[in-house]
């Protein structure tokens, strides 16, 4: 049984089909990459599987149960958490309190939740900034808080929406290291990312979305060699010349 399975999920906005009959599977322990050009429907797809949007058609199963129509908080209780591309730290809370809110997901007692929050803060390397307010953080700090909040909910599966965007190369390196630690802690992940280096290094499998449809699926090496993926990213005329990585 797959940890997460989306069956032919479709969502339309007015006349536009943002996500069209996408099938998607994640097995326990995997890191699955989700890529696609801007406007391919990646964030909409995240919203659909995390309960922020309801699919027009199709079904989403988590841990073998349909989560269609469940609220995001309920889905989070069951063990699937997401982060937002436009990060949403609670601006007037300290980093510790931000993460604490997540930790309350499985700990009703403030003391126990605080202990959990502190360990997550150490894991993602936010220790020195624990006392800062959400709004006082740099982009890199916000991205880490976003990740820490999600981790503190103790998810089986984490959906990460562009946690690398806006980071400097050295910050990206540090974040990759953090994600490695998260994987070692046994958390399954789906990552949406524009930074190809990240996707290629981290992912076990990759899905490619284009115009709302899943056009390819497979291990990173197959995906970079797939002509349809090239075409989607660069347009037909470039396919002949393009061989290496698509530009980021």
């Amino acid at each position: 049984m797959s940890l997460l399975e989306a069956r032919s999920v479709t969502r339309r906005f007015g006349g536009l089909t943002a996500v069209n009959a996408v099938d998607f599977r994640v097995e326990t322990g995997e890191i699955v990459g989700l890529i696609g050009p801007n406007g391919a429907g990646k964030t909409t797809f995240f919203n659909l599987i995390s309960g922020f949007l309801r699919p027009d058609e199709g079904d989403v199963l988590f841990d073998g149960h349909s989560i269609l129509g469940h609220k995001p908080s309920d889905i989070c209780k069951r063990g699937m958490t997401r982060t937002f591309q436009i990060v949403k730290p609670f601006p007037e809370m300290t980093v510790t309190d931000n993460v604490l809110v997540g930790a309350f997901n499985h700990h009703g007692d403030t003391g126990a939740a605080l202990a959990k929050a502190r360990s997550v803060i150490e894991l993602v390397g936010l220790g020195p900034q624990a006392g800062k307010l959400g709004r006082e953080l740099t982009v890199a700090g916000r991205k880490r808080v976003e990740l820490a909040k999600a981790l503190a909910t103790e998810p089986k599966l984490m959906l990460l929406d562009e946690v690398m965007a806006g980071l400097t190369p050295s910050e990206v390196g540090a974040m990759i290291e953090v994600l490695g630690r998260v994987r070692d802690a046994g958390v399954t992940m789906v990552i949406v990312e524009h930074v190809m280096q990240v996707i290629m290094n981290l992912s076990d499998r990759i899905y490619v979305l284009h115009h709302g449809e899943a056009i390819a699926e497979g291990p990173p090496r197959e995906i970079v060699a797939n002509p349809r993926v090239m075409e989607a990213y660069l347009g037909e005329s470039f396919v002949a010349e393009a061989g290496a990585e698509p530009a980021t």
């Binding site: 995390s50 922020f52 609220k71 995001p72 908080s73 309920d74 989070c76 209780k77 958490t81 997401r82 982060t83 937002f84 949403k88 730290p89 609670f90 601006p91 007037e92 809370m93 309190d97 604490l100 809110v101 997540g102 309350f104 997901n105 009703g108 403030t110 939740a113 959400g134 909040k149 999600a150 503190a152 909910t153």
Partner: peptide
């Protein structure tokens, strides 16, 4: 203010979607 309920309410005030995403039953 020191309990889970209080933190949840503060989270709701600051960003309801973000709260919902980390398991806060906002409604």
């Amino acid at each position: 203010a020191r309990s889970r309920f209080g933190y949840y309410l503060h989270a709701i005030r600051q960003d309801e979607d973000a709260a919902e995403a980390v398991g806060v039953p906002t409604k």
